[in-house]
């Protein structure tokens, strides 16, 4: 008979263990903040990339080239250990914590990928839209803000959702500069307690929960962006809300 060594109770013990939950919180914070930075900077870079000014589009191109070509681990090491060696300033060294370096680095890295996603979104909007906006007297920036980007969003959201999920998992790499996030917290606890499979199950569980919750939100966002379309997609959430709101008493 096959002897399976797996203690479900241990899983239960560590599922809500404070160390694990703390690490989960770190992971979420880093991922969310980095995504916000990445998206904001990425959209700006994308608008720069489609500009007809060669200087503007060139600078953005350079940024994307560098941050996409180098591995994020290397970027983390450069940004944290590298800068600490380079900048011999006490104020900087005191305030450039591992955590902050991780958020900024992940954010700057993400911006390069978001730039390409946003650029694809902008290119997907038909040229007639820009013609119409310009013929009404809008400047390039006004047209971008009010006409092009709102339409580009529908194309930008799905791959951005992908990026967030990837970011969540990439945070585990922050261990290279000593940030203890979910995966590595689990690893450490596994080593301490000689319970490898159970701890990794806990980590997997939390990754699944976060990504699932996020997927529901993403679907709802896509539904709301489909304004003015003949067929608006139905999501789990919208169906749930319809049942709860409309058919009481059934």
């Amino acid at each position: 008979m096959l002897a399976i060594r797996f203690d479900l109770d241990t899983v239960g013990d560590f599922l809500f263990d404070p160390i694990i939950l703390e690490a989960l919180r770190e992971t979420l914070y880093i991922a969310l903040l980095a995504m916000v930075l990445g998206i904001a900077l990425g959209v700006i870079l994308a608008v720069m990339r489609v500009s007809r000014n060669p200087l503007v589009s060139g600078m953005a191109g350079l940024y994307v080239w560098f941050w996409r070509a180098t591995p994020v681990v290397l970027q983390l090491l450069l940004m944290y250990f590298g800068l600490r060696q380079l900048i011999e300033n006490d104020f900087f060294r005191d305030n450039w914590t591992r955590w902050r370096a991780a958020v900024i680095t992940f954010g700057l890295n993400e911006a390069a990928y978001m730039a390409e996603i946003a650029r694809a979104g902008i290119l997907s909007v038909e040229s007639g839209q820009m013609d119409a906006a310009k013929s009404l007297g809008m400047t390039n920036l006004q047209a971008m803000r009010r006409v092009i980007l709102p339409q580009a969003l529908r194309v930008i959201v799905p791959p951005t959702g992908n990026e967030f999920v990837a970011m969540l998992k990439n945070t585990s790499v922050a261990f290279a500069i000593g940030v203890v996030e979910l995966l590595n917290a689990a690893k450490i606890q596994a080593a301490r307690n000689f319970r490898v499979m159970e701890l990794y199950t806990v980590a997997a569980f939390w990754y699944l929960v976060v990504v699932s919750a996020f997927s529901v939100l993403q679907a709802e966002l896509e539904r709301r962006l489909a304004v003015g379309e003949r067929e608006r997609p139905e999501t789990l959430l919208s169906r749930a809300m319809a049942v709860l709101g409309g058919r009481r008493g059934i």
Binding site: G128, Q129, D131, A132, A133, K134, S135, L136, G137, M138, T139, V147, P150, Q151, V227, G228, E229
Partner: peptide, 21 residues
């Protein structure tokens, strides 16, 4: 843009902004 604002243009494919009423 300013000079364009006093010239109106109507296109073959309408080019209405789909996300607005």
């Amino acid at each position: 843009a300013r000079k364009r604002a006093s010239i109106g243009m109507v296109f073959q494919r309408f080019n209405l902004f789909p996300h607005l009423t």
